[in-house]
Amino acid sequence: MTNVDARGKSCPLPIVLTARAVRQVAVGESIVVLADDRAFLPDIEAWCKKTGHALVQAQSKDGHFEAVVRRAL
């Protein structure tokens, strides 16, 4: 299940769309984010650190990045 497909989109859209999507799920639930912007890995890490949401997983897969973010609050 993919909640945000930000492939082909550039900064700041991947994190803006992630921020919007994480608000649509319940606390404790996770969303999957796909992106191919080169800034995505450091940005999603920083975004999680700043907002407090958990970065469950972040990996490179088939030429793009896939991150799993769990809503903390």
């Binding site: 803006v16 921020a19 700043k50």
Partner: peptide, 11 residues
């Protein structure tokens, strides 16, 4: 606007 939307997304 990149800064503004990015910062707003950061809470």
């Amino acid at each position: 606007f990149v800064l503004a939307t990015g910062a707003a997304a950061m809470g």
